[in-house]
Design a protein around this nucleic acid. Structure first.
Length: 414
RNA sequence: GCGGGCGUAGCUCAAUCGGUAGAGCGCCAGAUUGUGGCUCUGGAGGUAGCAAGUUCGAAACUUGUCGCCCGCCCCA
């Protein structure tokens, strides 16, 4: 027996409607926010993620599905959606279209990690990326889109917001962090020590008890924002407040992908285990230029579809019912079964979902089966019906029966 | 990569002290004549994850191995 690869999931018959429900909500949000769908390949040149996501990140360092193709090129299954979207934007010259370029995608993503609640090796994201606008209105709009998406699905989360500044103020802040931590770095964990030089911002994320006590009093990024960044952040906050979007400023959220700058945010739940971030994103004004194109500001987010589904299931959110067959047509012998086949074919042709017997069951068993399928009506064709052209159609909900002429079946069901 | 828990029927799970495998659900068939849900009866379905070891005897004990789950790191 060959079983499913670790960290992947099957979607069973009768379950995909949940996916469709979430995806439909995503597309509906995208429609009203005027976001246009893009699709990028499942794999890209490894270099794209190294440069885009950042060489120091865990995602790039230890979580990528990287392989060599038959031509000796290094390829990587996308670990997230932003780098590919940025590549698409650059490669297709979208910088010369009217700004901003507002996009969204629904995509699988792959990260080689130990699976746990809310973490798969293949997972799916609904993401939006808006290119070309530096203004805080765009930040607020993107956050609003995420918020609206989550509202539509009926899930409740908390929005945490921060600004990690631009290159200028972050350099200042990094200096301050280094100074602050340098005194006690020998008492801190190994990863923190290595982060001190490479990326001191990441120390703030450390959950080691020994490190936490030093982190507690570390300088806050929000005190180091340059004038422009501080103003930008105020703008975002006031727009969100004006729209009644609740949030808390959490100076600790720094995000693990290198491309972020200025506004960063997470929608968090405590209902789905340790991996509580259901949606995360931020501004990444440096990414496009890091990838070698003319500097272009951008902002986006990604929401984890499996995490959302977990959250919805754990909190009893209601998915709409899956569509059931409109009618089941039961035949009895070779002749009437043939007639049932034909009637079903005609109804399907006209858009009515119809089912028939495939297992040579008795009439009684066919009724049982039709009931299990949830068919709304069952029509029986026996010798009498065949001769008269009038079907007995039973409403399975209330048990009533009606005589319906064969030719009028469609309008009866419509 | 590191920690903890768990592997018995399709699913959820039982079985005093080690004595040779069960239930519920689901599936199939039946309870007279062409009609579902409720009920009843019968049936199919298991290499006890796998491999060693201890024992007269292992689902149970030991070791290894594989798998799953949860947590750490990090992220959606």
């Amino acid at each position: 027996m060959i079983n499913i690869p670790k960290g992947t999931k099957d979607v069973l018959p009768g379950q995909a409607y949940k996916w469709r429900y979430i995806e439909d909500a995503a597309r509906e949000v995208a429609r009203v926010f005027n976001l246009s769908e893009i699709r990028t390949p499942t794999f890209e040149h490894t270099e794209l993620f190294k440069r885009g996501v950042g060489e120091t990140t865990d995602v790039v360092n230890k979580e990528m599905y990287t392989f060599e193709d038959k031509g000796g090129r290094s390829m990587t299954l996308k670990p997230e959606g932003t780098a590919g979207a940025a590549r698409l934007f650059i490669e297709n010259g979208l910088m010369s279209s009217p700004m901003p370029v507002k996009t969204f995608y629904i995509t699988p993503a792959f990260r080689y990690e130990r699976p746990q609640a809310g973490r798969l090796r293949e997972f799916h994201q609904f993401g939006i990326e808006v290119f070309g606008s530096p203004s805080f209105e765009t930040d607020a709009e993107v956050i609003l889109a995420a918020s609206s998406f989550l509202d539509r699905l009926g899930v409740s989360t908390k929005l945490e917001l921060n600004s990690i500044g631009c290159r200028v103020c972050r350099a200042e802040y990094n200096k301050a962090l280094k100074n602050y931590f340098a005194a006690n770095i020998d008492c801190m964990c190994e990863t923190c020590r290595s982060r001190l030089e490479k990326n001191p911002l990441r120390i703030l994320d450390c959950k080691e008890e020994g490190c936490k006590k030093f982190i507690k009093d570390a300088p806050l990024i929000t005190d180091y924002l340059c004038g422009e960044c501080a103003e930008h952040f105020e703008g975002v906050k006031s727009l969100l407040t004006a729209q009644g979007v609740e949030f808390t400023v959490n100076p600790r959220i720094v995000r693990g992908l290198d491309y972020y700058s200025k506004t960063v945010f997470e929608f968090v739940s405590d209902e789905i285990g340790a991996q509580g971030t259901v949606c995360g994103g931020g501004r990444y004004d440096g990414l496009i230029s890091d990838l070698g194109a003319a500097a272009t500001p951008a902002i986006g987010f990604a929401a984890g579809i499996e995490r959302l589904m977990l959250l919805m299931e754990n909190t009893g959110a209601n998915f709409p019912e899956e569509q059931k067959p409109r009618i089941y047509i039961a035949g009895m012998d070779a002749q009437t079964r043939g007639a049932a086949f034909k009637i079903a074919a005609e109804l399907r042709e006209k858009g009515i979902s119809a089912e028939i017997d495939h297992m040579n069951r008795s009439v009684k068993a066919q009724f049982k089966y039709a009931d299990k399928l949830g068919a709304q009506y069952v029509a029986v064709i026996g010798g009498n019906e065949l001769a008269s052209g009038v079907l007995t159609v039973k409403n399975m909900k209330d048990g009533t029966q009606a005589a319906v002429k064969c030719g009028e079946l469609y309008s009866y069901l419509k």
